[in-house]
Amino acid sequence: MSTSTSSSLNVFEVGKYRVEFQRVEAAETRCCSSKSSSSVSVPPPKPLLIGLPGEAGEFPVLLLLHGFLLSNSFYSQLIQHIASHGFIVIAPQLYTVAGSDTSDEIKSTAAITNWLSEGLQSLLPPHVQANLDKLALAGHSRGGKVSFALALGKEEITTSLKFSALIGIDPVDGMDKGKQTPPPVLTYVPHSFDLDDMAVMVIGTGLGEVRRNPLFPPCAPKGVNHEDFFYECRKPACYFVAKDYGHLDMLDDETKGVRGKATYCLCKNGKSREPMRKFVGGVMVAFIKAYLGGGTSELIAIREGGHEAAPIELQTVEFLL
């Protein structure tokens, strides 16, 4: 294995930074916030789970959107992995109950993005600075659809801050082709996404389109999943598909509550969540660093190393450059 490939493996392990977590309630529940009213000058539009490096520095920011009916807390180990490499990760709880229409989630994500410049820094320790000139957006499952929708300006919604990188983690646009949830994102026209040269990464799962049992549809149905999202991307874009892992395998090892228990029985899963979570966290770190000014060596090493570089077997590795 080459030196560059060996170094890329570091992104798949925990980084050098100790990670701290903060929970911040939304404006309407401010009286119950884990942060006192006096310490939060401008409360966020939605509840937040924030993972940040515990050491001093200025760090890029990643906004991470949860999947359908999932809790942001289910991503705490993924958040910890990413934050340990020198990122501030903000995971909002967009809703607890939702219908098919994602318009409110798009609007909420835009509102959170606009809030960052006026409210985020007051939540952070004085020695930790958020660099909002280096801002990335990522979403899992339905959150992936919402991320693409916001970046594409659906619902004619814009943000005051500009995202430099976009990541879809097993994104899903509905139940089937022709049964997309509104507003639809996929057009089925090659390279049709007009993202103003924003760098894009799509991560897919080989088992996402496989039914867990005949009573439920697959969690990432063919025709509205990662394959179709990447098909519409323009360069620069990269695409990874994890062969033997499922739609929820990047979540925490243990997800509690009724919704947490459901994550083990609704989707086809791999043998263990840890390898997939390490891969997703690592490739996200490498991608964001590559396109937010942190260096391209780790992403290039993963591209060149392929199966050898990743902690899981990859079904697909493709780049549009």
Rank of each mutant, 00 (worst) to 15 (best):
M1Q: 06
T3R: 12
T3K: 10
T3P: 02
T5F: 02
S8P: 09
S8G: 11
N10S: 15
G15P: 02
G15H: 03
G15Q: 04
Y17E: 12
R18C: 05
V19H: 09
V19Y: 10
E20K: 15
Q22I: 09
R23T: 09
R23H: 04
A27S: 14
T29H: 14
R30D: 05
C32R: 15
S36V: 00
S37G: 13
P43L: 01
P43W: 03
K46R: 15
L49A: 05
P53D: 09
P53L: 09
E58W: 01
H66Q: 15
G67Y: 05
F68L: 11
L69D: 04
L69G: 00
S71C: 13
N72D: 13
S73Q: 13
Y75E: 04
S76Q: 13
Q77F: 03
L78D: 06
I79S: 07
I79W: 02
I82D: 06
A83T: 00
S84G: 10
G86P: 10
F87A: 08
F87G: 03
P92D: 08
T96V: 14
T96Y: 14
S108Q: 09
A111T: 03
A111G: 04
I112W: 02
W115D: 03
L116M: 14
G119E: 09
P125H: 10
P125C: 11
P126D: 11
V128I: 15
V128E: 13
Q129M: 13
L132H: 01
K134R: 15
L135R: 02
L137M: 12
L137Q: 05
R142V: 11
G144P: 06
K145P: 04
V146F: 11
V146S: 09
V146C: 08
S147A: 15
A151R: 06
G153M: 08
G153E: 12
E155P: 03
E156W: 02
E156K: 14
T158Q: 12
T159A: 12
T159W: 12
L161D: 00
K162T: 13
D170C: 12
V172Y: 04
D173I: 01
G174L: 08
M175V: 03
D176M: 11
V185F: 06
V189Y: 05
H191M: 09
S192V: 00
D194N: 14
D194R: 10
V200H: 04
M201C: 14
I203F: 07
G204L: 09
G208W: 03
G208N: 05
V210D: 03
R212T: 03
N213T: 05
L215N: 01
P218S: 07
C219R: 01
K222V: 05
E227R: 07
D228L: 08
C233P: 04
A237H: 02
C238Q: 04
Y239E: 07
V241P: 01
A242L: 15
L248A: 11
D253A: 05
E254Q: 08
T255C: 15
G257E: 11
V258K: 14
V258P: 01
G260T: 07
Y264E: 10
C267I: 07
G270P: 09
G270C: 09
R273L: 12
K278A: 12
V280M: 05
G281D: 04
A286I: 03
I288E: 02
A290K: 07
G295E: 07
T296G: 00
S297Q: 11
E298M: 13
L299I: 11
A301H: 00
A301Y: 04
E308P: 00
I312D: 00
E313P: 00
T316Y: 01
V317F: 13
L321F: 14
